[in-house]
Simulated assay, not measured.
Amino acid sequence: MKPASTMRPVRTAEAATTSLFHRLFPVNRDIAIKSIFGVWGAYFVFVTSRFLYVAQGNVDALFVQRILMTSICITSTWLLYRLLIAVRGRGMKSAIFMLTLPTVVLANYIAILDQIVFDHEAVVFDFSYLLKAVDFASFDWAYVLDEAFTRYFIFAGWGALYLALSHSQDAQRMMAHSRQLERVNRESELRALRYQLNPHFVFNALNSVSSLIIDRQNQQAEKMVDDLADYMRAVLTGGAQDMITVEQEIAQQVRYLEIERMRFPERLRYSVDIDQATKDWSIPSLIIQPLIENAIKFGVSGSDQPINITISAQSEGDRMRISVANDGRVIEPTARADDRSTGTGTGLTNVQDRLRTLYGQNASLLLANSKDGMATATIILPDPSQIFQDI
């Protein structure tokens, strides 16, 4: 292994080279390099290939002269690139101006150099004529104007290509950044919605524990505390999983129903009917929690008769229905909105917000009264691949 002292100059040289390279092409580096060398490389290949069908003397010397002119054109295009990035952000008019007057000057300058270089007998690697005084009177100005016209359109064409590619890249970058911000915002919103636990459930559960302790039902109180702790752990800490399977979601809700059944041992009955094909379907965690809360609040709590709650899930092609039904009738949201004692529909709004944030218009929440006297809330979900889509 080489000592560190011998490796430092290498790293310093590499850093200096990289720094110089970045200073030469500070903006849209890949686009600038590829377009400049691509355009003039194609031009060089085209003009050089003319010897295949046009007789030319001293082909080797002409080849070297074309390399010289192509290098000058590449340098001039780099100057135009620097002019374009100098007016970057000042609007399209400034860019168009740079592609007119400065570009015309560059084109004429290149045409004059072209006349000087090719108006001499070609000798390989002999450029001494470049040091002699230029006799403008001997110029073929018609040739110069033709060359200036051709070079101008090459420069202007490159400039338009560069601006178009740069604008496209900037637009794609901004779109990707916007999508990333939107996704982060959606995920943050989802987590905020997900953690909107109903405090009444916690208070009621703790009151039930207190009542069991007072009644010296210590075993039931301990079980309820354990169930409540497991449930809260699943909701608050296990949730780093924002999407879980239907089977996991149902298991969480059964744990919740078991806690509530300790409060209403004689009145709360529940059943689960899950289609085997839906068990591995990914759904938002706790998405049916507010529906079950409503079933208990407006069903069990509001009646002294036994109330049945049914949780079901069925697949329908590329969609799935997951429903929560309870004995009773659906209370109209408008009627409930003004009754602070019975709730304001926050739970249902939470569900709708989460569905809209995740699936756009591809998911829905439906409330209905069934023919067999059940109030039913149904969530219709698309295939999980349509998460974060708005169409």
Rank of each mutant, 00 (worst) to 15 (best):
G299M: 01
W281F: 13
A32F: 08
Y162H: 07
F46M: 12
D383S: 13
L268D: 02
I331S: 03
T342D: 07
S341T: 08
L163P: 00
R263H: 08
V184A: 07
A335E: 13
I72G: 02
S271K: 13
I36D: 04
L257R: 00
F63Q: 08
Y109V: 09
I331V: 12
D339R: 07
T75F: 15
V235D: 01
L367C: 00
E222W: 06
V123S: 06
Y109N: 04
A205F: 06
G345A: 00
D230G: 04
A337R: 09
G41V: 08
N207Q: 10
P306V: 05
K297P: 02
G91K: 03
F44M: 15
S5P: 05
D140L: 05
R179H: 11
Q252C: 00
D304W: 01
G302L: 10
A295R: 04
A13E: 08
Q169R: 13
R191F: 06
L165K: 11
I387Q: 12
F155V: 01
R151T: 07
S138M: 11
T357A: 09
Q56E: 11
D339F: 04
P9A: 09
I259S: 04
R186F: 06
L24S: 02
R23E: 08
V202D: 08
Q219V: 14
N218W: 13
L62R: 14
E266P: 04
S370F: 02
V87H: 04
V235M: 09
F51D: 01
R340N: 11
S315C: 09
F203W: 08
G41D: 09
N185Y: 10
L130S: 07
A111R: 03
D338M: 08
V124K: 11
S315Q: 15
S312H: 07
V351F: 04
R191D: 11
G328A: 02
S178Q: 13
N308V: 08
V324W: 01
S76T: 14
K2N: 10
L101Q: 04
D135L: 03
D275R: 14
R263G: 05
L365C: 00
